[in-house]
Simulated assay, not measured.
Amino acid sequence: MLRIGYVRLRDATAHEDTATLKAAGCQVVRAEEPGRDGETLSSILDFIGAGDQLVVTRLDRLALNGRGLLDALDRLDARGASLHVLAPELSSDGAAGSALRAVLEAVADLEPAGVRRRRPTAATHEIFALQRAGVGPVEIARRLGVSRMTVWRKLKALENAEA
C-alpha cells in the first residue's frame, strides 16, 4: 500500500503539513502550487492505485467545498483507493467511511448551487482512449469540451510516466 500525501501551498502552515505527512509515513508527498486550480490533486486521483491511500493533514486541505470533497472521494473509490485525514482522525474505509460520506453529502446539499468549475474536467482515460483511436489532440479537446492545453498536459504526463 502506497501512502500519498497531498498539501496545498497556500499559507505558512503548508510546509509544516509537508513535514507532518512525511512523519505520518507517506512515501510520496505532492504539493499544489497556488493558482494551479487542483491540477496536482487531479493527477494524483488519475493515477492512484487500488489499495493506495491519499493522506491529508486536514479535510479542508483536500478541497474547498463539500462537493469537491465528494468528487475526490468518488474518484478515490473508483480507483479502489482510500482517503485518510490526520486531524481529526478520519478515513474513508469501512463504516467510518460511510458516515464520512453521509456527512459530506449533507454539507454539499447546504452549499449554494451556482458555484461550479469554469470548465468540465476531462478524465485522463477518455483522453488516452481517444488518442489510441487515432484522434488528434485538437479534436479530443473539442469532443470532450476542454481546452487543448488540458489535453496536451495529460498526454505529456502519460509520455513522462512511460519514459
Rank of each mutant, 00 (worst) to 15 (best):
V56R: 00
L104F: 02
Y6I: 13
A99H: 05
A99F: 05
V135G: 12
E32Y: 11
A14M: 03
E32L: 03
L70C: 02
T13N: 07
A19I: 03
V107Q: 01
D109A: 15
P120A: 14
A50Y: 12
V115N: 06
E162P: 00
S91C: 10
V107H: 03
I4E: 00
A108G: 07
N65S: 10
L86N: 09
S43H: 12
G80A: 01
V146I: 10
G49K: 07
G68P: 02
T18D: 11
G5Y: 02
E89W: 04
P88Q: 12
A123Y: 01
L45Y: 09
D93R: 15
V103H: 06
V55N: 05
R10Y: 11
A123N: 05
R153G: 00
L73K: 00
H84K: 04
R143A: 06
E39N: 11
T124K: 02
E16S: 09
A50L: 08
A122W: 02
D37H: 15
R142H: 14
A129Y: 06
I48R: 04
P137Y: 11
E89F: 11
A50S: 14
A161D: 02
R101D: 09
V151L: 05
L64V: 11
A87L: 08
L104R: 04
H125N: 10
R117E: 15
A106R: 10
E33N: 08
L64T: 06
L73D: 03
Q53R: 09
L2I: 08
V138T: 14
S147V: 13
A78Y: 01
S91H: 11
L83R: 01
A99P: 00
G35I: 09
T121Y: 01
R118Q: 15
L104Y: 09
R61D: 13
L2H: 05
D77H: 01
R75W: 00
T13S: 15
T18S: 12
V107F: 08
D93F: 04
V29S: 07
R30M: 09
G25Y: 07
D46Y: 11
V7T: 05
D74P: 00
L144K: 03
T20G: 04
R30K: 10
S92G: 07
D46S: 12
N65A: 06
E126N: 11
M149A: 14
K22T: 10
N65F: 02
I48F: 10
D60S: 04
K156P: 02
D52T: 02
R116W: 06
P112Y: 12
V56K: 00
S98T: 13
A96N: 11
L76Q: 02
A133N: 05
G49S: 13
S42P: 01
R118T: 13
G68A: 09
R116E: 15
E32Q: 10
A122D: 07
V115Q: 05
N160Q: 13
T20V: 14
I127P: 00
R142W: 12
A24N: 03
L62Y: 04
A31Y: 06
A161E: 01
A50K: 03
E39I: 13
E16A: 14
P137H: 07
A50T: 12
T150S: 06
R119E: 04
A123D: 08
